[in-house]
Amino acid sequence: MPTPFQILLHNFNYVCYVVLLMIGLHAMITKRNLIKKLIGMSVFSTAIILFYVSIGVNNGGDMLAGHDGRPVGNIPVLEHGIGHDAITHPETIDPRRYANPLPHVLMLTAIVVGVATLGVALAITQRVFQDYGTLEEDEILAQLNNPQENDD
């Protein structure tokens, strides 16, 4: 029966992903500067992407390690010479030797969408700075609550 500490140590990568998620969430909630909030948002999204990609990692499991002397957990690209056989004899490809490419493909879309979100958010930040002359959330809220001070 492993203790909770041993379970955490065994799943150290998942612990790190959750720590990164919490860093991003904390920054989004507590930071007052708008650019700091956006950095927090990016940290949050990359932590989620990291979690998904780590699901596709193939360490060989327990039965495949040293199965036939060929390496496991490869980059999911067909080796030279196998590509032609793959059309006529698809059973010659052993998917257990490669990392799962499905999370990779899904997370490629997530990265691009994340950068697009960041770009739009930074453009809005520049517009806010043009109107209010500050990037601090509390100063912007103060100007919004006292419209007579906002003379431009």
């Binding site: 992407i49 990609v53 780590s54 596709g56 990692v57 193939n58 957990g73 490869n74 980059i75 999911p76 490669y98 990392a99 999370p103 990779h104 493909v105 997370m107 490629l108 990265i111």
Partner: peptide
């Protein structure tokens, strides 16, 4: 790159 996800 370590996780064999070179495209990502």
């Amino acid at each position: 790159a370590v996780m064999a996800a070179v495209d990502v």
